[in-house]
Amino acid sequence: MSTFVTFYAIVMVIRFIIMIAFIGLFVLIVRALLKYIKSKDVRQEKSAVRKSLGEALKEHRTRCKMTQEFVAEMIGVSRQAVSKWESGTSDPSTSNLFAIAKLYGISVEELLKEVE
Rank of each mutant, 00 (worst) to 15 (best):
G24V: 06
S87P: 05
K35Y: 11
I18S: 08
S93R: 07
G76V: 05
A81S: 14
K113Y: 07
L97F: 04
E114D: 12
A99C: 00
L33I: 12
G76M: 08
S47G: 02
S93N: 06
R61N: 04
K51T: 03
G88S: 08
T67D: 10
L111I: 02
I10E: 15
E116P: 00
M66G: 04
S93F: 07
V108R: 04
K113P: 00
F98V: 05
I29C: 12
E55I: 06
G24K: 02
A72H: 08
I17H: 05
S87G: 12
F16V: 07
S95K: 02
I20S: 07
L57K: 05
R31P: 01
V5S: 14
I23D: 02
V11W: 13
G24D: 08
M1W: 06
V49S: 11
I29F: 10
W85L: 12
A9E: 14
F98E: 07
L103N: 00
A99V: 01
L97R: 00
L53T: 00
G105S: 01
V71T: 09
E114R: 04
Y104R: 01
A21P: 01
H60F: 12
K38C: 06
F70K: 06
M19Y: 10
T3E: 15
A56F: 09
Y36Q: 08
E109Q: 03
L33E: 09
H60D: 13
R79E: 15
I18C: 11
R61Q: 11
G24R: 03
I75L: 12
K84P: 10
K51P: 01
Q68P: 07
V30N: 06
D41Y: 05
F26Q: 06
L25R: 02
E73G: 00
E86H: 08
K51F: 10
M1T: 06
I14N: 05
S87K: 03
E114G: 02
A48G: 07
L28P: 00
S52L: 11
Q80S: 15
V13L: 15
L53P: 01
E45V: 06
Q68L: 14
V77A: 04
E86F: 13
F26T: 04
A81R: 03
L57I: 08
V27H: 02
E109A: 09
I106K: 03
K40Q: 12
Y8I: 11
E59D: 14
A72G: 03
K58V: 08
L53S: 01
V30P: 02
V5E: 15
L97I: 06
S52E: 14
I100W: 09
F98I: 07
S2Y: 06
S78R: 04
S87Q: 11
L112D: 01
A101Q: 00
I23P: 02
K84I: 13
F4V: 13
A72L: 13
L33P: 02
I75P: 03
R43C: 08
A32P: 00
V77C: 08
M12T: 04
I29P: 01
Y8N: 10
Q80G: 10
A81E: 15
G24M: 09
T62E: 15
F16G: 05
R63E: 14
